[in-house]
Amino acid sequence: MDWALQDLIDKQAIREVVLTYCRGIDRLDFDLVRSAYHPDAIDHHTGFDGNIDEYIAWVTPKLSAIGGTMHHIGNHLVELHGDHAISEAYSMSTHWGGPEGIGMINFTSGARFIDHMERRNGRWAIKERWAVREWTRSDEGRFVNPEGPGPRGRRDASDPLSALRSSLE
C-alpha cells in the first residue's frame, strides 16, 4: 500500500479514537471510554493522575451526578512516528445540571487532549493522555429549557443513537 494512503488511514483511526472517547464520556458508556485506551494506559486530567481503571472509577461518579456533557473536537493534528503518534485535539466541553454541593457544575471549558497514541497488533489507542485545561467559564444561570417537544439526548439505551443502532442490527 502506498505510504501516503497508509498515513491517512492511520490518522483517521487515531481521530476515531479521540471521538470514541468523547462519545463514551458524553453517553456514560465507560466500556467505550475504556476501548479508546490500551489496558496499561495512563491519564492526566485536572485533579487526577492514574491508570485507565482508576480514571474511570474517578470520573464515573462525577459525570453520573450531573445532567450531561457534550465534548466538541476542533483542530486535530496527528504526527506519525511509526507505531507511535502524537495527537493534539482541541476540545470545548460543556457540563450541565446536577445537585448543589457537588462542585463546579454548569460550566464550559477549553482543553487540548495531548495523546501519546500507540499501534499494537494493528490497533491504535491511547497510551498516555494529558487533558490540558486551557480555560473554564461558569455557565450558571445561562441554561434554559428546550423551547418545545422533540428528541432529547439520554445517557442510556433510550438515546436516539442507541435506538437507531438497535434498528439496524
Rank of each mutant, 00 (worst) to 15 (best):
R154L: 07
T108S: 15
D83C: 03
Q12D: 01
T20M: 01
W124E: 07
W96E: 11
F113L: 06
D2T: 02
R133C: 15
H45F: 00
D115I: 07
I73F: 13
I56H: 01
H44A: 11
W130M: 15
I56F: 05
V59W: 06
G122N: 08
G148C: 04
Y21A: 13
S158M: 09
R154S: 10
G67D: 04
T69I: 11
A85T: 13
G98T: 01
A125V: 05
R120V: 14
D115Q: 08
R119E: 09
E134Q: 15
H84C: 12
F48H: 08
R27Y: 00
D40Q: 00
H76W: 12
T108K: 09
A131V: 08
R112H: 11
I73L: 14
I114E: 04
L5D: 04
V59R: 00
L77W: 10
D31H: 05
T136Q: 14
Y37H: 03
I14C: 05
Q6V: 05
F113H: 04
R142P: 00
H116K: 09
F48L: 09
T136V: 14
G103S: 00
R165F: 11
L8A: 15
T69H: 07
E88A: 06
I73V: 15
L8T: 13
G47P: 01
R137Y: 14
R119I: 05
V33C: 11
A131D: 09
D26L: 03
D10A: 13
S109H: 15
T136H: 10
S87Q: 06
A85R: 12
R119T: 05
Y55D: 08
E128S: 12
S87K: 08
G97N: 08
D156W: 02
I66N: 00
R154I: 01
H84P: 10
T108C: 13
A13H: 04
G141S: 05
I114F: 03
E134M: 15
A131T: 12
G122L: 05
N145F: 06
H44F: 05
R119F: 08
E88I: 03
T20H: 02
L8P: 05
K11Q: 12
E88Y: 01
